[in-house]
Amino acid sequence: MLKTETPSSQHPDLDLYPVADLVSALVDDQLEAVSAVRAAAPDLARAVEAALPRMLDGGRLIYAGAGTSGRLGVLDSVELYPTFSWPHERAVGLIAGGAGAMFVAVEGAEDDAAQGGRDLLTVKVGPRDVVLLLAASGATPYVLGALQAAREAGALTLGFANNTGAPVARQAHIGITLDTGSEVISGSTRLKAGTAQKIALNTFSSALMVRLNKVYGNLMVDLKASNAKLLQRAVALTMRAAGCDEAVAMATLQGCDFHVKVAIVAIRLGIGVDTARERLDAVSGSVRQALTSGDPSP
């Protein structure tokens, strides 16, 4: 039996617990998710390094999963645009059962390996793409079908599983095993198995975006200011990174469509926003290099 399906030896009388103890048991078990991701950190680092050249070459991140895993993949793909201005068309989320499965479970969809392959072909997967295959069991047919199609197309494949020796991790170019073991509620992989996947996806995509110059220091300077909260965040980030007051930050941001990177370089160097944008374009969007005339060392 898969570890994720094996009944836990802890808390066999969970249904008898007082609410306070019940909540504590569920929360405490989540700590194992962090440990599982920490153990997989070397493989996550390998995945980032392998994915980077393909992203620099214009490739896409394509996520494929079923159920909870599929929803977590879609979530990661969707959040890359507001956080890092990563283009919508370069972050594709596929879930067994189609878009509607995000909201209503589509029974049996995960068992269709052929559909997994067809979905990858529908989005025209190619050799510049990076495909993240997500399955707690590591053997979901839909995901394995997507994996086969991705490999045949020459894409880089990253297999995420919560069971050791799982097919999706073995057959992918890089396997990332998040060994979370049995669940407090037996078989409910939306618990710590899902938590571990969320952490791993956050870690992978965020590290990749740092390497793609979406971050300056530890500031998210390439966000898309698409609502009031993010507009305020853009102003605060500009003030912090450029060492200016709110009025200067706001005026400069308004002149460059609230592109924080451009505003920082313009204010710090005392140049116009068009010139600042040109400097950034010349150094692949690196704020650090734009501020130092291409010298990456400071």
Rank of each mutant, 00 (worst) to 15 (best):
L147E: 11
G126M: 07
L132Y: 01
A113C: 11
R240I: 12
N162W: 00
G243P: 02
A166K: 03
S69T: 07
L208G: 02
C244G: 08
V27K: 05
R233E: 09
E32N: 09
A276I: 02
A153S: 12
A290P: 08
V92C: 05
F204G: 00
S69N: 07
A276W: 05
A64T: 15
A290D: 06
D13T: 12
G159P: 00
A234K: 10
D295K: 08
E183K: 09
T195C: 05
G165D: 10
A155K: 02
G100L: 11
L80N: 10
A155D: 04
R288V: 11
A249Y: 11
A161F: 03
D245P: 01
V130C: 10
L237I: 15
P7W: 05
W86S: 13
V283G: 03
S182G: 14
V221Y: 00
L156Q: 03
T252V: 11
Q197M: 13
A66K: 02
S186L: 13
V273C: 12
R151V: 11
I185S: 05
L223W: 08
P82H: 13
A113M: 10
V260T: 15
L132A: 08
K192D: 08
Q197E: 13
R170I: 10
S24E: 15
E89I: 03
V123L: 08
I95A: 07
D245L: 10
F258M: 15
A39R: 09
L22V: 01
G181I: 13
L191Q: 02
D245Y: 08
R151Q: 13
D13K: 14
L212E: 02
G93K: 06
A47S: 14
V215S: 06
R46K: 15
P12T: 07
E89W: 03
F103K: 06
E110Y: 06
V283F: 00
G294I: 12
S206H: 09
S85K: 13
A166L: 01
F84C: 13
T292K: 09
L120N: 12
S297Y: 04
Y142F: 13
A139M: 07
D222I: 14
S205C: 13
G73D: 11
S182E: 05
D257G: 04
L237N: 10
S205Y: 00
K198E: 07
I95H: 06
L253H: 14
L219F: 07
V125S: 04
P82L: 14
V34F: 10
G97A: 10
G270Y: 10
A263T: 10
L44W: 00
L223D: 11
D111P: 03
A20C: 02
F160D: 04
A66N: 03
A40R: 01
D274R: 12
S182M: 11
G145F: 02
Q115G: 01
A146L: 01
D257M: 04
L75G: 05
A153I: 05
L269R: 14
R60G: 05
G97W: 08
G194I: 05
Q115W: 09
L212N: 03
T275N: 08
L291S: 04
T68S: 15
D57C: 12
R277M: 04
P87W: 01
G67E: 09
S182D: 07
